[in-house]
């Protein structure tokens, strides 16, 4: 438990560093790439929180979040390539 207490603030520092890139990113691809990394780290963060609070509520959210990230990538890639969203 003390290990998780040590690890979680370091993840918060890396969240802040990623969010600087999200808000600064010159093109839309940089923003989407940084948001990808942020969501993969959010998955780890939520898994740690689920162990820390001894609660099962966050576990299904974690599985769905990892699939939504792929959906974001594919939608933005399709928009950049064909200049239309999938219908």
């Amino acid at each position: 438990m003390t290990f998780i207490m040590i690890v979680l603030p370091i993840y918060l520092v890396s969240f802040v560093l990623y969010f600087i890139r999200v808000f600064k990113g010159p093109t839309i691809s940089d923003t989407v790439l940084a948001i990808d990394c942020v969501s993969f780290e959010t998955i780890v963060f939520m898994a740690m929180l689920a162990i820390f609070f001894k609660s099962l509520l966050l576990i299904p959210v974690v599985i769905l979040l990892s699939v939504w990230t792929y959906a974001l990538d594919v939608f933005v890639a399709k928009y950049l390539e064909k200049k239309e969203m999938g219908e």
Binding site: T27, S29, F40, T69, Y70, V74, A77, K78, L80
Partner: peptide
Amino acid sequence: LVSPAGSHALARAT
């Protein structure tokens, strides 16, 4: 499985 596929698709589209 998902993260290399997504980043490759994004890189190709870019």
